[in-house]
Simulated scan of single mutants.
Amino acid sequence: MDKVILKNLKFDLAVGLDAWRRFDKPQPVSITVEVVPTSNLEAAAAQDNVNLSLDYGKLYKTLAGNLTNGVYHNIHVLISSLAEMMPDYAFLDIDIHFPKALLQVSGGVLYRLQVDNSTPGVTTPSLTLDIKQIACACIIGVNPHERLYKQSLFINVSIPIITTALGPKPNETHYTAELHDMVQEIVERVDGSSYHTIEALASAVAQIVTLNYGHTVAKVRVEKPNAIATIEASAVEITRSKTFFENKDFWKVKKP
């Protein structure tokens, strides 16, 4: 499929809560847009004519002119505003990255919207939230020296989000602090834990995300940067549904 791409547009926008849980405070936001037009780019290439393409210059000016210094009650309102600025398309991908959205997160928060508009009269959106590199520390590992000191860990969490934030009436549900609360709980629970395997720790984190915060499924990656000296990190990634944790508890008391 032919695409027109605008990569990493930089803004300072007030979207929901900032890292300190304050409303209406601007924070850095990076937006990447990938648009698959309703017709391919063959004619533009054959005639070397930008008027036969999707003009990324005009799209950039539209986005930059409307988003500068914007204030958005929540992420859904921002997504709706972005979608309304798009030209006709068959498929649309929008990545919205908040690098400093959460105090305990090194890699920031990424919202990824994908829209299938290829069938006339049918628009199918999906929204995923990625929390990148939650910084934690705990006793983790099977080797004797690993049982003596806490190790630094990075935890990534990916969850699907139901969104109706497309069209003229965006989702106006009041923003909550659940995302901040969830990350805070993960950090505090991991800090007080002791595990032999990162498989068990990853399952415990997925248990928090699904059971305590109502998400139907969670993908969790746990990285150990110090496990093997000659590589950047060893890691395990799992995907677990909420139903998986029925009659299971991965937060059992662990002894060093």
Rank of each mutant, 00 (worst) to 15 (best):
P125F: 08
V205G: 04
S81F: 13
L148Q: 13
T123Y: 07
A227D: 12
K150Q: 15
E178L: 02
L6D: 09
L110W: 10
G65K: 14
Y111V: 00
N69Q: 09
R112G: 01
V205L: 07
Y195P: 05
D95K: 12
S194W: 02
K242R: 13
V4I: 15
L52W: 05
K10V: 05
G121P: 00
Q114N: 07
P168C: 13
Q184D: 15
L110F: 03
L102T: 07
N171L: 13
V35C: 10
I161D: 12
T38N: 10
K169I: 12
E42V: 02
H180S: 06
V29R: 00
T32K: 02
D249V: 01
G214T: 06
S158G: 05
S81E: 08
I94L: 08
K224A: 00
P125K: 05
R147L: 03
E188C: 05
D48A: 08
N226G: 14
A202T: 08
T32D: 12
I198M: 11
D181N: 08
N156V: 03
Q133S: 15
Q47C: 06
N212G: 02
D116I: 09
E246Q: 10
I131S: 07
A177K: 07
V205T: 04
R240I: 05
V236Q: 02
A44C: 10
T38A: 06
S80E: 11
V217N: 09
P125L: 12
K248C: 15
P37R: 04
I208R: 11
P225T: 11
V115G: 01
I161G: 03
K10R: 14
Q104M: 09
K242Y: 11
I96E: 04
V77K: 04
Y111G: 00
V183A: 07
A44I: 03
V209N: 14
Y175L: 08
N117M: 05
K150W: 05
I5R: 13
V157Q: 09
Q151Y: 02
I134K: 06
L179R: 03
H97N: 01
V15N: 01
F244E: 10
V4K: 09
L63V: 14
S193V: 09
S234K: 00
E178S: 06
L92G: 02
